Simulated assay, not measured.
Amino acid sequence: MLRSCLLSGGDSRRMGRDKALLPHPSGGPWLERGLRRLASLGRPITLCSRHSSHLALAAGLAQPLGVPLDCFEEPPPSRGPLRALARLMHRHPDDAILLLMPVDMPWLETQSLRQLLEAADQHPHQFCLAHDGQRLQPLLGAYPNTATLRRDLEDWLALDHRRLHGWLDRQPVLPVRLEPSQLRNCNHPHDWPHDGPAARPDKAAGP
């Protein structure tokens, strides 16, 4: 069984405000758009976040999404996507593949997600990860979830390794070439021209 997982636990320091709650031109915040993109695949979804505002927003969308939604509040300490992946793998041991997607790829379309699923169907024992033609984008990809991999990842984390790329160097990775424009991350205000002044909060009220 495959489960979709939306990663939304970052601090958005470079953006200066919570990226997951930025308004998207298609309607709703980025978080809602990400959940709806994953829901279009018809698979169960887990939202992984340590932000109560994200979890509350997702809970209100659970019924309209039309697929089972698990809102997972990631406990401290927060140590990046590698620790989040380990927690998701242990939370869903019966799901053979976890499709990871970050909340900060607001241009991503469903077809790219389907391409990753097709690659995973054909290569179930490989890490089918998005590639933009220049480098891997490992926060978007289909990850096998086996007991052996869970143990290997825990051993890796126990050595205080935190880089996702470092662990992936030990794994059978299959790059899946996707449309580069859909894989752009938004990390700074100038990366997101759709967020006009009217949508910006008061400086005093900002995070």
Rank of each mutant, 00 (worst) to 15 (best):
L82S: 09
T110Y: 00
D132K: 12
R151Y: 01
L140C: 11
F127A: 04
D152H: 12
P93H: 02
L140F: 11
G133Y: 10
L100D: 10
A119S: 12
D94K: 11
Q115D: 14
E118Q: 14
P106S: 03
L139W: 15
L164F: 11
R91Q: 15
Y143P: 10
Q134F: 06
P102C: 04
H92N: 12
F127Q: 03
H131N: 13
L116V: 07
G166K: 04
Q126H: 13
R87C: 03
A96Y: 01
A86I: 01
H123E: 09
Q126E: 15
A86P: 01
W107A: 15
H125R: 13
H90I: 00
L98M: 08
P138W: 12
A120G: 12
A84L: 04
L108V: 12
P124L: 08
M101S: 13
R151W: 02
R91L: 15
L82W: 09
Y143A: 03
M105D: 00
P102M: 03
D121E: 14
H92R: 10
L149K: 12
M89T: 08
L159R: 15
L88I: 09
D155S: 13
L164M: 15
G141H: 05
L117V: 14
L116S: 05
L136G: 07
D152F: 01
E154R: 14
M89Y: 07
P138Y: 10
H125W: 04
D95H: 15
T146A: 11
A84Y: 03
L99N: 07
F127Y: 15
E118S: 12
C128H: 08
H90M: 05
H131Q: 08
R135H: 13
G133N: 11
